[in-house]
Design a binder for these strands. Structure first.
Length: 459
RNA sequence: GUGGUUGUAGCUCAGUUGGUUAGAGCGCCGGAUUGUGAUUCCGGAGGUCGCCGGUUCAACCCCGGUCAUCCACCCCA
Protein backbone atom coordinates (compact mmCIF):
# COMPACT_ATOMS: atom_id res chain seq x y z
CA UNK A 1 0.00 0.00 0.00
CA UNK A 2 1.20 3.48 -0.79
CA UNK A 3 2.00 5.82 2.06
CA UNK A 4 -1.13 7.36 3.45
CA UNK A 5 -1.41 11.01 2.51
CA UNK A 6 -1.54 13.49 5.33
CA UNK A 7 -1.57 17.20 6.02
CA UNK A 8 0.90 19.30 8.00
CA UNK A 9 0.70 19.32 11.74
CA UNK A 10 -1.81 21.76 13.14
CA UNK A 11 -3.76 22.10 9.89
CA UNK A 12 -7.16 20.62 9.14
CA UNK A 13 -9.49 19.63 6.33
CA UNK A 14 -13.05 20.88 6.59
CA UNK A 15 -15.82 18.62 5.38
CA UNK A 16 -19.20 19.92 4.17
CA UNK A 17 -20.92 19.76 7.57
CA UNK A 18 -18.02 21.57 9.18
CA UNK A 19 -17.89 24.15 6.43
CA UNK A 20 -21.59 24.93 6.73
CA UNK A 21 -21.05 25.51 10.44
CA UNK A 22 -17.94 27.58 9.86
CA UNK A 23 -19.75 29.69 7.30
CA UNK A 24 -22.53 30.22 9.79
CA UNK A 25 -19.96 31.73 12.18
CA UNK A 26 -18.33 33.82 9.46
CA UNK A 27 -21.69 35.00 8.14
CA UNK A 28 -22.83 36.01 11.62
CA UNK A 29 -19.66 37.97 12.33
CA UNK A 30 -19.60 39.51 8.87
CA UNK A 31 -23.21 40.58 9.22
CA UNK A 32 -22.57 42.35 12.51
CA UNK A 33 -19.35 43.95 11.18
CA UNK A 34 -21.28 45.43 8.28
CA UNK A 35 -24.09 46.57 10.54
CA UNK A 36 -21.50 48.61 12.42
CA UNK A 37 -20.20 50.16 9.22
CA UNK A 38 -17.03 48.14 8.67
CA UNK A 39 -15.97 47.40 5.11
CA UNK A 40 -14.03 44.37 3.88
CA UNK A 41 -10.46 44.20 2.65
CA UNK A 42 -8.11 41.34 1.96
CA UNK A 43 -4.33 41.19 2.04
CA UNK A 44 -1.99 38.53 0.66
CA UNK A 45 -1.27 35.34 2.56
CA UNK A 46 2.39 36.27 2.51
CA UNK A 47 4.06 39.51 3.43
CA UNK A 48 7.62 40.65 3.19
CA UNK A 49 9.39 39.16 6.16
CA UNK A 50 10.58 42.53 7.44
CA UNK A 51 6.98 43.77 7.52
CA UNK A 52 6.22 41.18 10.16
CA UNK A 53 9.37 40.83 12.23
CA UNK A 54 9.70 42.84 15.39
CA UNK A 55 5.97 43.49 15.76
CA UNK A 56 4.98 40.60 17.99
CA UNK A 57 7.77 40.48 20.52
CA UNK A 58 10.63 38.03 20.72
CA UNK A 59 8.37 35.02 21.04
CA UNK A 60 6.24 36.13 18.11
CA UNK A 61 9.16 36.42 15.72
CA UNK A 62 10.06 32.81 16.37
CA UNK A 63 6.52 31.73 15.50
CA UNK A 64 6.42 33.35 12.06
CA UNK A 65 6.40 30.86 9.19
CA UNK A 66 9.16 31.89 6.84
CA UNK A 67 9.20 31.09 3.16
CA UNK A 68 12.41 29.87 1.60
CA UNK A 69 13.55 32.10 -1.26
CA UNK A 70 13.08 30.68 -4.72
CA UNK A 71 16.10 29.86 -6.81
CA UNK A 72 19.47 29.76 -5.15
CA UNK A 73 18.42 30.71 -1.65
CA UNK A 74 21.98 30.19 -0.41
CA UNK A 75 23.15 33.15 -2.44
CA UNK A 76 21.75 35.50 0.20
CA UNK A 77 23.90 34.01 2.96
CA UNK A 78 26.81 36.21 3.96
CA UNK A 79 30.49 35.32 3.55
CA UNK A 80 30.90 34.49 7.20
CA UNK A 81 27.97 32.11 7.21
CA UNK A 82 29.21 30.39 4.08
CA UNK A 83 32.62 29.96 5.61
CA UNK A 84 31.21 28.38 8.72
CA UNK A 85 29.20 25.95 6.67
CA UNK A 86 32.18 25.13 4.49
CA UNK A 87 34.14 24.37 7.65
CA UNK A 88 31.52 21.85 8.55
CA UNK A 89 30.38 23.75 11.62
CA UNK A 90 26.97 22.89 13.00
CA UNK A 91 24.87 25.99 12.46
CA UNK A 92 21.18 26.14 13.25
CA UNK A 93 19.27 26.87 10.03
CA UNK A 94 17.28 29.47 11.94
CA UNK A 95 20.45 31.57 12.01
CA UNK A 96 20.09 32.10 8.29
CA UNK A 97 16.35 32.79 8.36
CA UNK A 98 16.60 36.39 7.31
CA UNK A 99 19.22 35.60 4.68
CA UNK A 100 17.48 32.75 2.90
CA UNK A 101 13.95 34.07 3.33
CA UNK A 102 12.38 37.38 2.45
CA UNK A 103 8.73 36.38 2.59
CA UNK A 104 6.60 35.00 5.40
CA UNK A 105 3.04 33.89 6.03
CA UNK A 106 1.00 36.45 7.88
CA UNK A 107 0.92 35.98 11.65
CA UNK A 108 -2.15 38.09 12.29
CA UNK A 109 -4.34 40.55 10.42
CA UNK A 110 -3.52 43.71 12.34
CA UNK A 111 0.04 44.27 11.13
CA UNK A 112 -0.80 43.63 7.47
CA UNK A 113 -3.66 46.05 7.96
CA UNK A 114 -1.32 48.70 9.32
CA UNK A 115 0.89 48.13 6.29
CA UNK A 116 -2.15 48.43 4.05
CA UNK A 117 -3.20 51.71 5.64
CA UNK A 118 0.23 53.25 5.16
CA UNK A 119 0.47 52.05 1.59
CA UNK A 120 -3.02 53.24 0.65
CA UNK A 121 -3.23 56.30 2.86
CA UNK A 122 -4.06 58.58 -0.04
CA UNK A 123 -7.08 56.53 -1.12
CA UNK A 124 -8.48 56.06 2.36
CA UNK A 125 -10.82 58.46 4.05
CA UNK A 126 -10.34 58.42 7.79
CA UNK A 127 -11.49 57.23 10.23
CA UNK A 128 -11.21 53.98 8.33
CA UNK A 129 -13.30 51.06 9.50
CA UNK A 130 -12.34 47.82 7.87
CA UNK A 131 -13.00 44.18 8.55
CA UNK A 132 -10.99 41.23 7.35
CA UNK A 133 -11.72 37.52 7.57
CA UNK A 134 -8.73 35.45 6.51
CA UNK A 135 -6.48 32.68 7.77
CA UNK A 136 -3.27 33.35 9.68
CA UNK A 137 -0.36 31.01 10.38
CA UNK A 138 1.73 30.44 13.46
CA UNK A 139 4.58 27.97 13.82
CA UNK A 140 3.49 27.06 17.31
CA UNK A 141 3.20 23.56 18.68
CA UNK A 142 -0.43 22.58 18.22
CA UNK A 143 -2.57 21.49 21.13
CA UNK A 144 -6.16 21.75 22.28
CA UNK A 145 -7.66 24.86 20.73
CA UNK A 146 -4.42 25.78 19.08
CA UNK A 147 -3.81 25.37 15.38
CA UNK A 148 -1.03 26.34 13.02
CA UNK A 149 -3.51 27.63 10.48
CA UNK A 150 -6.60 29.37 11.75
CA UNK A 151 -8.99 32.13 10.81
CA UNK A 152 -9.20 35.51 12.39
CA UNK A 153 -12.10 37.88 11.89
CA UNK A 154 -10.82 41.37 12.54
CA UNK A 155 -12.55 44.71 12.78
CA UNK A 156 -10.44 47.82 13.28
CA UNK A 157 -11.06 51.55 13.33
CA UNK A 158 -8.01 53.56 12.44
CA UNK A 159 -7.57 57.31 12.46
CA UNK A 160 -9.70 58.08 15.47
CA UNK A 161 -8.73 58.38 19.13
CA UNK A 162 -12.33 58.57 20.32
CA UNK A 163 -13.29 56.15 23.05
CA UNK A 164 -16.61 55.77 21.30
CA UNK A 165 -14.80 53.23 19.13
CA UNK A 166 -13.95 51.13 22.16
CA UNK A 167 -17.55 51.34 23.26
CA UNK A 168 -18.80 50.23 19.86
CA UNK A 169 -16.43 47.31 19.78
CA UNK A 170 -17.69 46.13 23.16
CA UNK A 171 -21.23 46.31 21.84
CA UNK A 172 -20.15 44.52 18.69
CA UNK A 173 -18.75 41.63 20.75
CA UNK A 174 -22.05 41.52 22.60
CA UNK A 175 -24.07 41.50 19.38
CA UNK A 176 -22.13 38.68 17.79
CA UNK A 177 -22.31 36.38 20.79
CA UNK A 178 -25.94 37.19 21.36
CA UNK A 179 -26.71 36.04 17.82
CA UNK A 180 -24.56 32.93 18.29
CA UNK A 181 -26.29 32.28 21.60
CA UNK A 182 -23.07 31.90 23.54
CA UNK A 183 -22.51 33.24 27.04
CA UNK A 184 -19.24 35.16 27.21
CA UNK A 185 -17.25 37.41 29.48
CA UNK A 186 -15.62 40.42 27.86
CA UNK A 187 -12.54 41.31 29.84
CA UNK A 188 -11.17 44.78 29.55
CA UNK A 189 -8.10 46.53 30.86
CA UNK A 190 -5.92 49.44 29.84
CA UNK A 191 -2.19 49.42 29.22
CA UNK A 192 -2.03 52.84 30.89
CA UNK A 193 -3.34 51.33 34.11
CA UNK A 194 -0.69 48.62 33.89
CA UNK A 195 2.01 51.23 33.34
CA UNK A 196 0.61 53.14 36.31
CA UNK A 197 0.88 50.09 38.51
CA UNK A 198 4.54 49.73 37.56
CA UNK A 199 5.01 53.43 38.21
CA UNK A 200 3.56 53.50 41.71
CA UNK A 201 5.47 50.36 42.60
CA UNK A 202 8.62 52.30 41.80
CA UNK A 203 9.88 50.30 38.82
CA UNK A 204 8.29 51.77 35.72
CA UNK A 205 10.96 50.21 33.52
CA UNK A 206 9.79 46.75 34.55
CA UNK A 207 6.25 47.10 33.14
CA UNK A 208 6.64 44.27 30.67
CA UNK A 209 7.97 41.82 33.25
CA UNK A 210 5.36 42.79 35.81
CA UNK A 211 2.59 42.60 33.29
CA UNK A 212 3.49 39.23 31.79
CA UNK A 213 3.75 37.80 35.29
CA UNK A 214 0.38 39.25 36.28
CA UNK A 215 -1.18 37.77 33.17
CA UNK A 216 -0.72 34.32 34.66
CA UNK A 217 -2.43 35.08 37.96
CA UNK A 218 -5.57 32.99 37.55
CA UNK A 219 -3.45 30.14 36.22
CA UNK A 220 -0.59 29.86 38.70
CA UNK A 221 -1.72 31.93 41.66
CA UNK A 222 -0.37 34.92 43.52
CA UNK A 223 2.68 33.29 45.06
CA UNK A 224 4.06 32.00 41.77
CA UNK A 225 3.39 35.35 40.12
CA UNK A 226 5.42 37.10 42.79
CA UNK A 227 8.11 34.48 42.44
CA UNK A 228 8.29 35.06 38.70
CA UNK A 229 8.56 38.81 39.24
CA UNK A 230 11.45 38.24 41.63
CA UNK A 231 13.34 36.11 39.13
CA UNK A 232 12.79 38.83 36.53
CA UNK A 233 14.46 41.32 38.84
CA UNK A 234 11.45 43.14 40.22
CA UNK A 235 12.29 44.55 43.64
CA UNK A 236 10.64 43.51 46.91
CA UNK A 237 9.29 47.03 47.40
CA UNK A 238 7.70 46.94 43.99
CA UNK A 239 6.08 43.59 44.70
CA UNK A 240 4.66 45.00 47.91
CA UNK A 241 3.50 48.01 45.93
CA UNK A 242 1.57 45.74 43.61
CA UNK A 243 -0.09 43.85 46.44
CA UNK A 244 -3.31 45.92 46.54
CA UNK A 245 -4.12 44.53 43.12
CA UNK A 246 -4.66 41.07 44.53
CA UNK A 247 -7.29 42.41 46.92
CA UNK A 248 -9.49 43.83 44.17
CA UNK A 249 -12.93 42.31 44.08
CA UNK A 250 -16.38 42.96 42.78
CA UNK A 251 -17.76 45.05 39.96
CA UNK A 252 -16.12 47.98 38.24
CA UNK A 253 -18.16 50.36 40.37
CA UNK A 254 -16.64 48.81 43.48
CA UNK A 255 -13.14 48.48 42.06
CA UNK A 256 -12.91 51.97 40.65
CA UNK A 257 -12.59 54.03 43.86
CA UNK A 258 -9.99 51.62 45.26
CA UNK A 259 -7.94 51.88 42.08
CA UNK A 260 -8.24 55.69 42.00
CA UNK A 261 -6.84 55.91 45.49
CA UNK A 262 -4.09 53.39 45.03
CA UNK A 263 -2.85 54.76 41.72
CA UNK A 264 -3.46 58.45 42.51
CA UNK A 265 0.21 59.38 42.12
CA UNK A 266 0.35 58.24 38.49
CA UNK A 267 -1.07 60.57 35.89
CA UNK A 268 -0.91 57.78 33.33
CA UNK A 269 -2.97 55.43 35.46
CA UNK A 270 -5.46 58.19 36.15
CA UNK A 271 -6.07 58.68 32.46
CA UNK A 272 -6.44 54.94 31.97
CA UNK A 273 -9.01 54.69 34.74
CA UNK A 274 -10.92 57.62 33.32
CA UNK A 275 -11.03 55.97 29.92
CA UNK A 276 -12.21 52.69 31.39
CA UNK A 277 -14.95 54.49 33.32
CA UNK A 278 -16.16 56.09 30.14
CA UNK A 279 -16.24 52.79 28.30
CA UNK A 280 -18.10 51.03 31.09
CA UNK A 281 -20.63 53.79 31.35
CA UNK A 282 -21.20 54.37 27.65
CA UNK A 283 -21.44 50.68 26.83
CA UNK A 284 -24.49 50.56 29.07
CA UNK A 285 -26.36 47.37 29.67
CA UNK A 286 -25.30 44.61 27.32
CA UNK A 287 -27.67 42.13 25.71
CA UNK A 288 -26.07 38.93 26.91
CA UNK A 289 -22.34 39.40 27.49
CA UNK A 290 -20.73 40.37 30.78
CA UNK A 291 -18.23 43.23 30.72
CA UNK A 292 -15.58 42.89 33.38
CA UNK A 293 -12.48 44.82 34.38
CA UNK A 294 -9.52 42.49 34.71
CA UNK A 295 -6.36 44.11 36.04
CA UNK A 296 -4.36 40.98 35.25
CA UNK A 297 -5.27 41.07 31.58
CA UNK A 298 -2.05 41.94 29.77
CA UNK A 299 -1.92 40.29 26.36
CA UNK A 300 1.36 39.54 24.75
CA UNK A 301 1.27 41.70 21.68
CA UNK A 302 3.72 44.50 22.01
CA UNK A 303 1.86 47.17 20.14
CA UNK A 304 -1.13 47.76 22.44
CA UNK A 305 -1.08 51.13 24.20
CA UNK A 306 -4.59 51.77 25.52
CA UNK A 307 -7.58 49.52 25.98
CA UNK A 308 -7.04 45.76 25.90
CA UNK A 309 -9.84 43.30 25.24
CA UNK A 310 -10.20 39.61 25.63
CA UNK A 311 -13.29 37.43 25.39
CA UNK A 312 -13.67 34.10 27.13
CA UNK A 313 -16.47 31.63 26.78
CA UNK A 314 -18.50 31.25 29.96
CA UNK A 315 -19.64 27.81 28.77
CA UNK A 316 -17.64 24.79 27.69
CA UNK A 317 -14.05 23.91 28.42
CA UNK A 318 -12.08 26.13 26.05
CA UNK A 319 -9.21 27.28 28.23
CA UNK A 320 -7.93 30.16 26.12
CA UNK A 321 -9.57 33.30 24.88
CA UNK A 322 -11.82 33.25 21.84
CA UNK A 323 -11.35 36.92 20.94
CA UNK A 324 -8.76 39.57 21.54
CA UNK A 325 -8.12 43.17 20.74
CA UNK A 326 -7.01 46.56 21.88
CA UNK A 327 -5.85 50.05 21.02
CA UNK A 328 -2.53 50.71 19.37
CA UNK A 329 -1.41 54.30 19.10
CA UNK A 330 1.46 53.95 16.72
CA UNK A 331 1.32 50.76 14.75
CA UNK A 332 1.55 52.59 11.42
CA UNK A 333 4.46 54.63 12.73
CA UNK A 334 6.87 51.78 12.03
CA UNK A 335 5.79 51.99 8.40
CA UNK A 336 6.24 55.74 8.30
CA UNK A 337 2.79 57.11 9.06
CA UNK A 338 2.68 58.98 12.38
CA UNK A 339 -0.23 59.97 14.57
CA UNK A 340 -2.57 57.29 13.45
CA UNK A 341 -4.23 55.67 16.42
CA UNK A 342 -6.35 52.62 15.92
CA UNK A 343 -8.38 50.17 17.90
CA UNK A 344 -9.51 46.75 16.85
CA UNK A 345 -10.77 43.35 17.81
CA UNK A 346 -10.31 39.88 16.50
CA UNK A 347 -12.63 36.88 16.63
CA UNK A 348 -10.93 33.48 16.74
CA UNK A 349 -13.35 31.62 14.49
CA UNK A 350 -11.81 28.20 15.06
CA UNK A 351 -12.03 28.41 18.81
CA UNK A 352 -15.56 29.76 18.59
CA UNK A 353 -16.36 26.74 16.43
CA UNK A 354 -14.94 24.38 19.04
CA UNK A 355 -16.96 26.01 21.80
CA UNK A 356 -20.22 26.06 19.82
CA UNK A 357 -19.74 22.41 18.89
CA UNK A 358 -19.02 21.37 22.45
CA UNK A 359 -21.98 23.29 23.87
CA UNK A 360 -24.29 22.20 21.06
CA UNK A 361 -25.16 25.68 19.86
CA UNK A 362 -25.18 25.19 16.11
CA UNK A 363 -28.63 25.51 14.54
CA UNK A 364 -30.11 22.22 13.35
CA UNK A 365 -30.97 23.22 9.81
CA UNK A 366 -27.38 23.87 8.80
CA UNK A 367 -27.30 20.26 7.63
CA UNK A 368 -27.89 20.61 3.93
CA UNK A 369 -28.69 23.15 1.30
CA UNK A 370 -30.57 20.90 -1.15
CA UNK A 371 -34.30 20.77 -0.42
CA UNK A 372 -35.46 18.44 -3.16
CA UNK A 373 -33.89 15.51 -4.96
CA UNK A 374 -35.31 14.16 -8.22
CA UNK A 375 -34.85 10.43 -8.42
CA UNK A 376 -33.45 9.20 -11.73
CA UNK A 377 -35.40 6.41 -13.51
CA UNK A 378 -33.73 6.57 -16.87
CA UNK A 379 -33.01 8.79 -19.80
CA UNK A 380 -36.58 9.79 -20.67
CA UNK A 381 -37.65 10.39 -17.09
CA UNK A 382 -34.47 12.34 -16.40
CA UNK A 383 -35.14 14.65 -19.34
CA UNK A 384 -38.61 15.25 -17.97
CA UNK A 385 -37.19 16.01 -14.52
CA UNK A 386 -34.71 18.43 -16.00
CA UNK A 387 -37.55 20.74 -16.99
CA UNK A 388 -39.21 20.55 -13.57
CA UNK A 389 -35.83 21.04 -11.95
CA UNK A 390 -35.44 24.31 -13.78
CA UNK A 391 -38.77 25.73 -12.61
CA UNK A 392 -38.14 24.61 -9.03
CA UNK A 393 -34.75 26.32 -9.06
CA UNK A 394 -36.26 29.44 -10.65
CA UNK A 395 -38.56 29.54 -7.62
CA UNK A 396 -35.49 29.74 -5.43
CA UNK A 397 -35.52 26.18 -4.14
CA UNK A 398 -32.24 24.31 -4.03
CA UNK A 399 -32.80 21.10 -5.95
CA UNK A 400 -30.83 18.45 -7.77
CA UNK A 401 -31.36 15.49 -10.05
CA UNK A 402 -29.58 12.26 -9.25
CA UNK A 403 -27.20 11.91 -12.18
CA UNK A 404 -27.32 8.15 -12.68
CA UNK A 405 -30.24 5.80 -13.12
CA UNK A 406 -29.12 3.46 -10.36
CA UNK A 407 -31.44 1.55 -8.09
CA UNK A 408 -33.78 3.45 -5.84
CA UNK A 409 -32.26 2.33 -2.57
CA UNK A 410 -29.00 4.01 -3.47
CA UNK A 411 -30.71 7.22 -4.53
CA UNK A 412 -32.75 7.39 -1.33
CA UNK A 413 -29.70 6.71 0.74
CA UNK A 414 -27.98 9.57 -1.02
CA UNK A 415 -30.85 11.88 -0.04
CA UNK A 416 -30.74 10.57 3.51
CA UNK A 417 -26.98 10.98 3.90
CA UNK A 418 -27.15 14.47 2.52
CA UNK A 419 -30.08 15.48 4.71
CA UNK A 420 -32.31 16.31 1.75
CA UNK A 421 -35.88 16.59 3.12
CA UNK A 422 -37.87 15.73 -0.04
CA UNK A 423 -37.46 13.28 -2.89
CA UNK A 424 -39.47 13.64 -6.12
CA UNK A 425 -40.23 10.32 -7.79
CA UNK A 426 -41.17 10.45 -11.43
CA UNK A 427 -41.22 7.06 -13.09
CA UNK A 428 -43.13 5.77 -16.06
CA UNK A 429 -46.51 5.88 -14.28
CA UNK A 430 -46.08 9.42 -12.98
CA UNK A 431 -44.97 10.65 -16.38
CA UNK A 432 -48.03 9.14 -18.02
CA UNK A 433 -50.35 10.77 -15.49
CA UNK A 434 -48.42 14.04 -15.44
CA UNK A 435 -47.86 13.92 -11.69
CA UNK A 436 -45.00 13.84 -9.21
CA UNK A 437 -44.80 11.54 -6.23
CA UNK A 438 -43.11 13.45 -3.41
CA UNK A 439 -41.72 11.66 -0.41
CA UNK A 440 -41.16 13.48 2.85
CA UNK A 441 -37.99 11.86 4.14
CA UNK A 442 -38.65 12.72 7.74
CA UNK A 443 -42.18 11.35 8.08
CA UNK A 444 -41.86 8.80 5.30
CA UNK A 445 -45.18 9.93 3.82
CA UNK A 446 -45.71 10.09 0.07
CA UNK A 447 -48.02 12.36 -1.84
CA UNK A 448 -48.93 12.58 -5.51
CA UNK A 449 -49.11 16.17 -6.77
CA UNK A 450 -49.17 17.99 -10.08
CA UNK A 451 -45.92 19.42 -11.34
CA UNK A 452 -46.95 23.01 -10.67
CA UNK A 453 -47.81 22.19 -7.06
CA UNK A 454 -44.31 21.00 -6.38
CA UNK A 455 -42.92 24.39 -5.44
CA UNK A 456 -45.67 25.03 -2.89
CA UNK A 457 -45.23 21.64 -1.27
CA UNK A 458 -41.48 21.78 -0.87
CA UNK A 459 -40.90 25.47 -0.27
C1' G B 1 12.47 25.01 22.67
C1' U B 2 11.08 21.51 27.40
C1' G B 3 8.17 17.33 29.59
C1' G B 4 4.69 13.42 29.03
C1' U B 5 0.92 10.30 26.09
C1' U B 6 -0.52 7.27 22.25
C1' G B 7 0.52 4.65 17.29
C1' U B 8 -3.54 -2.38 15.62
C1' A B 9 -9.22 -2.38 9.49
C1' G B 10 -11.88 3.72 6.31
C1' C B 11 -13.26 5.56 11.79
C1' U B 12 -13.39 4.47 17.33
C1' C B 13 -10.94 0.94 19.99
C1' A B 14 -10.12 -4.52 22.35
C1' G B 15 -5.97 -8.00 22.13
C1' U B 16 -4.39 -12.21 28.79
C1' U B 17 2.43 -14.19 31.68
C1' G B 18 5.59 -13.54 24.57
C1' G B 19 2.69 -19.15 21.56
C1' U B 20 0.21 -21.28 15.89
C1' U B 21 -5.21 -18.50 11.78
C1' A B 22 -5.04 -10.59 15.20
C1' G B 23 -10.84 -9.29 16.97
C1' A B 24 -15.39 -5.99 18.01
C1' G B 25 -18.58 -1.80 17.07
C1' C B 26 -19.52 1.76 13.43
C1' G B 27 -18.90 2.65 8.23
C1' C B 28 -18.50 0.42 3.22
C1' C B 29 -20.21 -3.35 -0.57
C1' G B 30 -23.83 -7.30 -1.83
C1' G B 31 -28.49 -9.90 -0.80
C1' A B 32 -33.63 -10.54 1.67
C1' U B 33 -37.10 -6.21 -1.34
C1' U B 34 -36.33 -5.90 -10.36
C1' G B 35 -39.95 1.84 -7.62
C1' U B 36 -38.14 3.59 -1.47
C1' G B 37 -33.59 5.84 2.83
C1' A B 38 -33.06 6.03 8.28
C1' U B 39 -35.00 0.59 11.31
C1' U B 40 -34.52 -5.36 10.87
C1' C B 41 -32.13 -10.03 9.11
C1' C B 42 -28.15 -12.64 6.27
C1' G B 43 -23.48 -12.51 3.71
C1' G B 44 -18.78 -10.14 2.00
C1' A B 45 -14.44 -7.18 1.25
C1' G B 46 -10.84 -4.68 4.02
C1' G B 47 -4.54 -5.38 8.35
C1' U B 48 3.47 -5.09 6.34
C1' C B 49 -0.08 -4.43 14.12
C1' G B 50 3.75 3.54 12.45
C1' C B 51 8.91 2.52 10.59
C1' C B 52 14.04 0.38 11.39
C1' G B 53 16.97 -2.70 14.23
C1' G B 54 17.81 -6.04 18.60
C1' U B 55 16.52 -10.19 22.26
C1' U B 56 14.01 -15.13 21.50
C1' C B 57 12.74 -21.63 18.98
C1' A B 58 8.74 -17.87 18.65
C1' A B 59 7.30 -10.58 19.09
C1' C B 60 1.15 -6.76 18.16
C1' C B 61 3.31 -7.79 23.18
C1' C B 62 10.04 -7.16 25.71
C1' C B 63 14.49 -3.67 24.56
C1' G B 64 16.87 0.42 21.59
C1' G B 65 16.27 3.98 17.92
C1' U B 66 13.26 6.82 14.64
C1' C B 67 8.89 9.15 12.74
C1' A B 68 4.02 10.65 13.65
C1' U B 69 0.14 12.05 17.14
C1' C B 70 -2.25 14.15 21.14
C1' C B 71 -1.73 16.64 25.90
C1' A B 72 0.86 20.09 29.14
C1' C B 73 4.62 24.17 29.73
C1' C B 74 6.16 28.81 27.17
C1' C B 75 3.10 31.82 24.41
C1' C B 76 -1.40 32.74 22.09
C1' A B 77 -7.14 33.22 18.70
Amino acid sequence: MANKPSIPKGTRDFSPTEMLRRQYIFDTIRGVFQKYGFLPIETPAMENLDTLTGKYGEEGDRLIFKILNSGDAWSGVGEEGKKRLANGEVVHPGRFATEVSEKALRYDLTVPFARYVVQHQNEISFPFKRYQIQPVWRADRPQKGRYREFYQCDADVIGSTSLLNEVELVQLFDDVFTVLGLQVVIKINDRKVLSGIAEVSGQPEKVVDIVTALDKLDKIGREKVEEEMRTKGVSEEAIIGIAPLFELKGSWKEQQPILEKWLASSATAKQGLKDLSFTFEAAGTLKSAVLEFDPTLARGLDYYTGAIFEVKAAEGTMPGSICGGGRYDDLTGIFGLKNMSGVGISFGADRIYDVLLETNKFPEQLGSSTKLLFANFGEQEAMHCLKLLRTVREAGIAAELYPDAVKMAKQFKYADDKGIPFVAIIGEQEMKQGIVTVKDMKSGEQKAVKGEELVGLVG
